[in-house]
Design a protein around this nucleic acid. Sequence first.
RNA 1: GCCGCCGUGGCUCAGCUGGCAGAGCGGGUGACUUGUAAUCACCAGGUCGCGGGUUCAAAUCCCGCCGGCGGCUCCA
Length: 613
Amino acid sequence: MKLLLIHADYMEYEVKEKTKFAEDYQGTGDRVEEVLVAFVSVEKGDNEDVAKKAVEEIKDVAEKVGSKRILIYPYAHLSPNLADPETAIKILKILESEIKDFEVKRAPFGWYKSFRISCKGHPLSELSREIKAEEEVTKALKDEKEIVSFWFILKPDGELVKVKEFNFEGYENLRKFAKYEMEKRRAVDTIPAHVEFMKRLELADYEGASDSGHIRYYPKGRLIKSLLERFVTQKCIEYGAMEVETPIMYDRNHPTLRRYLERFPARQYILSGDKREFFMRFAACFGQFLMLADSTISYRNLPLRIYELTRYSFRKEQRGELVGLRRLRAFTMPDMHTIVKDMEQAMEEFLKQYKLSVEVLKEIGIEPEDYEVAIRVTKDFYEQNKDFLKKIAGFLGKPILLEMWDSRFFYFVLKFEFNFVDSLDKASALSTVQIDVENAERYGIKYVDVDGEKKTPLILHCSVSGAIERVMYALLEKAKFMMDRGKLPMLPVWLSPTQVRIIPVSERFLDKAKEVAEKIEARVDVDDRDETLNKKIRDASMEWIPYIAVIGEKEVQEGKLSVTIRSESDLKEQKRVMMSIEELNERLRRDCEGKPFMPLTLPKLLSLRPSFR
RNA sequence: GCCGCCGUGGCUCAGCUGGCAGAGCGGGUGACUUGUAAUCACCAGGUCGCGGGUUCAAAUCCCGCCGGCGGCUCCA
């Protein structure tokens, strides 16, 4: 809302002609003496809160200038972004009725009027104010503050123990995670390890020219991200999901979507289109649910799974929350939704997707001991399905943090997450699956059952690995743990940008090095720079390259390569092995079995490469 | 969003009781032709995050903004 306040000797206006938005009005105008005139533009997004704040502002000014009379004068020309007429009239009426202790008059809305005003000209006689709505906070975000949680540990044998009574000995990470979830934390003053690594390895960096939480990826980072994206997508498709693609923004006032937004505890980016306002998706739910609502689905098709890799999902997280790759405002997430016909089928799928998530993370290089499991459940669901939860707890054979709610605040009754605990003891969710009991109804998703009746299914939300950026974060943080244990940090071989580096002992062996590079079946590069051997070895090590192959007189004669194997080396002692090209290829095949492969997009010769930072 | 700390060549940082903007790495040029974690020399490179203010004089002091890190809170 825009306000222009003028303290006047008098204000006189004449009502001329109707516009098409005119409210009912009889009369020809008015003249008010000794008055504070409030010219008002009601803007898009203004609501009752704005009106109330405006009331306070106007009263405040009226008191300061010592005016007993106030004239509310609708004046569209203060703003290029006007509210619709109904809202505007509503808000103006609030102003009129809520300004107490003054003599309040109001000029009619939607009429052409002429006016004459005599401004007093003292220092406070002309003021303008802008009043903005508080950023819209969804109901779910508010509710979240009210939730009462009960915390337990679910033991592998299905026994439920209160957190306070659980003996955490031997479960240090679970202790940290439980603490992280339940308590306040103390200050640490270090840059997270992965932020250091993502920059130093030229994987990714902040992009200051974008919003916070939007990242740039250099060639090596993009390669790693692509490989993870492909792998995760491949796993979901193998699991039986159909890949689709849906828009990244939606009408903010679409009734169905709006109600769902209200149920999700996240803040949205808002964008204005020509006529409508849009929000950026925070997940693929919107597009996929709308698609499913328009589909004809038979019980024979169930469980039915659709999948999308969201590049991107947007969440306008609070600024203080954003860190490196751990939490972003734009992120890439595998998002699979499964339609099932009843709770029994839902639980069956839930367990399968739980197992799938374990497998996917394991193949990526994140083992069950690297994360902690959390289960969030309503009391009712828990009481009715104890055996099922016991089965879940048994699968990994480790205790699980269980959060129980008296009533259902969200759209789901059951959810699990795998939480990675990083080098600063921070926990972040990776894989998650939820059983959604609300949205099929809300979106009008139906299936036709055996009896020919249309029925409402249940929906599972599954992010099989969690956000791809967060997977990268976890891998880098894991590398930090390797360092702390005295090992050399590295990425899994299939994700290492350069898998093999060939280093000629001197320029004489450069051609030979290039020749060898052609025969290696991996992402290979050749250090052809005019540097000492020591320098080249050091640089390759700093890049975490899994295999460094040196070639010189000896190697040429023996027809072998002298290969330094990073995973078996440490800072004190390097593991060096004489290997034939075929032996090296065989080893690489084993390292990367079942994983996608993409060539390195950087020039093969190091001398041709720019430095991105 | 709120609170605290931080912001100097491409990178890492020194300079900060106000007084000529520095180093190492990286880059360019030349020498060297190297056997497993940094070869040597020379050269180029800076609106000291941005905008105001105080002062004869500001990287240095003050205010505002932007960005980063940590905390509150929450998630993928």
